[in-house]
Design a protein around this nucleic acid. Structure first.
Lengths: 253, 253
DNA sequence: CCCAATTTGTTCGTATGTATC
DNA sequence: AGATACATACGAACAAATTGG
């Protein structure tokens, strides 16, 4: 036995783990000060380079932000879903998640999120929904505007996610919206042939807005469920179409 | 131009972004070689420390693993959900997600996952489910064994997640199971008073196993839906109890 | 089994940009 | 404007780990 350096894990990793534990143990909140470069060097006896790696890891995890200058250093970052979303995207990138997989989740999650948002929409949210519908209902002048409309249709669902009091549900909703945004630009879901899809979405959004104004949770649930079912059908049709064109371009051996 | 000091974003961050783009552009797969320390230094003209920060960031993101020695360097890591799960945990840590929030998602997600797993369970999975049920059905000799049983009940759901062909659905399922494992140990859900909860879970698992053996997706859906509804009730009761004891210990001003 | 080559891991010294006072 | 404090970046050197002769 007897490992001479007695270290199987990288030094920086163990320090990172230690700092993480310290953060939760001391009940630190966003904005509080965390150990900076010098403090890590002095309290752990490591070098600047190692301390920098530790800070870098915590930055990537979205836990801390660093500022230069006097009074600068490392501070606990505000809760941000972006790092988690980015890593989930990379994980799913290698797992080859397709649009059908996205909608298998979305069709059960989005109705739940929609009803959870009832009673949590303020005037600004209602105004944003109205403006969103107004823009998406306009007849697009060119393909570029059509693409922007499709992106904005997803923003409508982001408004609902922002109003959802359940942070996990809201995260999943926003994440799925982001995935669909990517699919829109990569799979060309904004093509003219898909115009009826866009019109269906807008009408569903109109119905949702009305149900929200009346605070009718059951109706919100029913409309959103149907909305997702409809959108799933469009997505599957789109993917089949893309599949066909790909098969024509690159025939398999 | 020549603007070395004219930089608003950190150098290492831009290199990280560049490497990420390179990975997806070249369609690299897990196991493929990525730029290591030396290569980063030579191709980006940065220092060793900066190159190490880049590698560190990619490691934290779960994208690459590094090995020492000849033939070592940075390699694209196998798809791993752990980094994404860890960051999602930290995000939700600051968002104060409670057990009720977990079950609001779980009760709509787990039935969908359960039916998706139908037809994807092999003999090993069936054997694992049987062994799991057998262990959890045993009368616990002490509180410690009871706690282990509660953890293992969640492993039953992990078996289903492993069989689920939708990677996103499987990720959410495994993530929720992990969250509940933490709640079990922190909120003491394994207390003797909760024994009937455990028995209910085991009976639901038995019914699920039978439905899976018959490949009856509808029955799987119904049983799991009821299972989640039941578990949600127990979780809410538990949290109310914990809330009461906390109010007794630390009366609010 | 040891030795050498290779590549990451770690340390120290130094310099520079940047924000605060 | 200058001094201070801090992160950011570079360079050189050594240690540790792994592979192959």
């Amino acid at each position: 036995m007897a490992f001479p350096p007695l270290r199987r894990t990288k030094l920086s990793d163990s320090i990172v783990q230690d700092v993480r534990r310290l953060i939760v143990a001391r009940r630190l909140e966003p904005g509080d000060r965390v150990m900076g470069e010098q403090e890590l060097v002095t309290s752990y006896g490591c070098s600047k380079g190692t301390a920098r790696e530790v800070l870098k890891a915590l930055q990537v995890e979205g836990l801390v932000v660093t500022r230069t200058g006097p009074g600068g250093g490392a501070y606990l970052a505000a809760a941000d879903s972006e790092p988690a979303a980015r890593m989930l995207r990379t994980f799913l990138h290698f797992s080859h998640l397709d649009g059908a997989g996205v909608y298998q989740v979305r069709k059960v999650e989005e109705p739940e999120l929609a009803v959870a948002a009832v009673g949590h929409l303020d005037q600004a949210a209602f105004a944003a929904m109205e403006a969103n519908i107004a823009f998406c209902a306009r007849r697009p002048r060119d393909e570029e505007e059509q693409r922007r409309q499709r992106i904005l249709e997803l923003d409508f669902h982001d408004i609902l996610a922002d109003a959802c009091p359940n942070p996990l549900l809201a995260f999943i909703g926003r994440f799925l919206n982001g995935m669909l945004r990517d699919l829109v630009v990569f799979k060309g879901a904004y093509k003219p042939e898909r115009h009826q899809f866009s019109e269906a979405n807008v009408s569903y959004h109109r119905l949702l807005l009305e149900a929200y104004r009346q605070g009718d949770g059951d109706r919100v649930q029913r409309i959103m469920t149907e909305h997702m079912k409809d959108a799933e059908g469009h997505m599957c049709a789109l993917e089949e179409e893309v599949e066909r064109t790909l098969l024509l371009d690159v025939p398999r051996p």
